[in-house]
Lab assay of single mutants.
Amino acid sequence: MDETGKELVLALYDYQEKSPREVTMKKGDILTLLNSTNKDWWKVEVNDRQGFVPAAYVKKL
């Protein structure tokens, strides 16, 4: 969790967005987890953008 109590995830792999609903991340990025109710796609925030990334590409910290 960060200082505001939000849950964080670590990008395990690079991911290039394939639609406007997704976000690009690089391996090693720390992202804010917004929603993990879907087992396949998690909603995150990175670089002031919100979108989805494959759940298998990130790990909760």
Rank of each mutant, 00 (worst) to 15 (best):
M1N: 13
M1G: 14
D2K: 12
D2S: 13
E3F: 10
E3N: 14
E3R: 13
T4R: 12
G5H: 14
K6A: 10
E7L: 10
E7T: 15
L8C: 12
L8D: 04
L8P: 04
L8N: 05
L8F: 14
V9T: 02
L10R: 09
L10Y: 10
L10N: 03
A11F: 01
A11K: 01
L12Y: 04
L12T: 04
L12N: 04
L12R: 04
Y13D: 07
Y13Q: 12
Y13R: 15
Y13V: 10
D14H: 05
D14R: 03
D14P: 05
D14T: 05
Y15I: 01
Q16A: 12
E17K: 12
E17R: 12
E17V: 05
K18F: 05
K18I: 07
K18Q: 14
K18G: 08
K18D: 06
K18V: 08
S19Y: 06
S19W: 05
S19E: 08
P20C: 09
P20H: 09
P20F: 08
R21H: 13
R21A: 13
R21M: 14
R21V: 11
E22A: 05
E22W: 03
E22L: 05
E22D: 05
V23P: 01
V23M: 10
M25F: 09
M25T: 03
M25H: 01
M25C: 06
K26R: 12
K27D: 02
K27F: 05
K27E: 07
G28W: 06
G28F: 04
G28Q: 02
G28E: 02
G28I: 01
G28A: 03
G28K: 02
D29K: 03
D29H: 05
D29S: 07
D29G: 04
D29W: 12
I30T: 06
I30S: 03
L31N: 01
T32S: 08
L33S: 02
L34T: 04
L34R: 04
L34P: 01
N35V: 08
S36C: 12
S36N: 07
S36M: 09
T37K: 10
N38I: 05
N38V: 05
N38S: 09
N38G: 09
K39Y: 07
K39L: 10
K39N: 10
K39H: 11
D40A: 10
D40L: 11
D40P: 02
W41C: 06
W41A: 02
W42Y: 06
W42R: 01
W42F: 07
K43S: 08
K43P: 01
K43N: 06
K43D: 03
K43H: 10
K43G: 05
V44R: 00
V44I: 07
V44K: 00
E45Y: 06
E45C: 12
E45V: 09
V46T: 15
V46R: 15
V46P: 00
N47C: 13
N47I: 11
N47F: 12
D48H: 12
D48S: 10
D48P: 05
D48C: 12
R49G: 04
R49F: 05
Q50A: 11
Q50N: 07
G51W: 03
G51R: 02
G51M: 05
G51T: 02
F52P: 00
F52T: 03
F52M: 08
V53C: 03
V53L: 02
V53D: 01
V53P: 01
P54Q: 02
P54T: 01
A55E: 04
A55N: 03
A56L: 09
Y57A: 13
Y57M: 13
V58N: 00
V58K: 00
V58R: 00
K59F: 08
K59W: 08
K59T: 14
K59D: 08
K59S: 10
K59G: 08
K60W: 07
L61F: 08
